[in-house]
């Protein structure tokens, strides 16, 4: 009898079961919230809008991917500037970083779409708004380049020198492979940041997930169904992403 009790305790206290319980708490909370609404919960109300929501979902992924690539490239260029011998470049990136860190993403998008864009003669708000998102993420990208390149110790460079590796060989076999492995986890975290930030692109009427669902709720007033669905759809992207990040860090981390 006692061993049975112990066994039961071991199972209940195991990691997978604990996570199932923890998840259950949040599901219960959601059910409670839904059940307390004045109107009955009807997912079928969403059906006529399903096509739009799907395309919004894909647009969210698409614009986030563009922003990921864009900010990665821009972040790398800024990283190179910080490494320059010319003090101006370092000062420039420092001032830029401070300004961005002090700016809400929403403000950044508005400024780019409604102020900077028109001044430069473009009213393509999707492009300028996305550029705002790219610029906003850039310092975070510069940071991860700084920390990954910085984590290759001086002694490693000394060893490369001692063993007689050529400049090309150093990058090809030693520096780049390490940087890629160390870069992946923070890069994925930034991707998650971008996906969440992309919701703000609705203010420039970019037809991403947030925009499409608010369009629907404005028409059919199904706020509960719509917003819960929206929330779920964001989590469907971001949670697997963060789990995948943890996996590759465990598997390939240095």
């Amino acid at each position: 009898m006692k061993t049975n009790k112990n066994q039961l305790r071991r199972v209940l206290d195991s990691k997978p079961v604990s996570y199932i319980f923890a998840l259950g708490v949040f599901v219960l909370f959601a059910i409670l919230i839904v059940s307390r609404q004045l109107r009955p919960f009807q997912l079928s109300a969403i059906e006529p809008y399903w096509g739009n929501i799907q395309s919004g979902f894909l647009n969210t992924i698409w614009v986030s991917f563009i922003a990921l690539v864009g900010s990665l490239v821009l972040g790398f260029i800024f990283y190179l500037l910080t490494q320059s011998k010319l003090k101006f470049f370092k000062a420039f990136t420092d001032v830029f970083t401070e300004i961005i860190y002090g700016t809400p993403l929403l403000v950044m998008i508005m400024i780019m779409a409604f102020v900077v864009g028109p001044a430069l003669g473009t009213f393509n708000r999707t492009a300028t708004g996305t550029l705002g998102l790219i610029i906003y993420i850039t310092p975070y990208m510069t940071n991860i380049f700084k920390s990954t390149f910085g984590s290759i110790s001086e002694e490693q460079y000394m060893a490369m020198d001692l063993f007689g590796f050529s400049g090309y060989q150093r990058y090809r076999y030693i520096i780049i492979p390490q940087v890629v492995r160390m870069l992946m986890p923070p890069l994925m975290n930034n991707f998650s940041l971008i996906i969440k930030g992309s919701a703000l692109l609705n203010v420039i009427t970019y037809r991403e997930l947030f925009y499409e669902i608010t369009q629907m709720t404005n028409n059919n007033f199904r706020f509960v169904e719509g917003f819960l669905l929206m929330w779920g759809l964001y989590l469907i992207i971001t949670i697997p992403l963060s789990q995948f990040t943890k996996y590759i860090d465990r598997r390939y981390g240095l």
Binding site: E155, M158, G164, F165, Q169, P177, Q178, R181
Partner: peptide, 28 residues
């Protein structure tokens, strides 16, 4: 003509112990 052993092993962290050695022999 010199071998050097550093304070902390200073192996390249992304390579196996074997590859840490064979990479040098192969490439240089």
């Amino acid at each position: 003509h010199v071998g050097f052993v550093f304070q902390s092993h200073n192996l390249f962290p992304h390579l196996t112990l074997k590859r840490n050695i064979s990479l040098i022999l192969e490439k240089t």
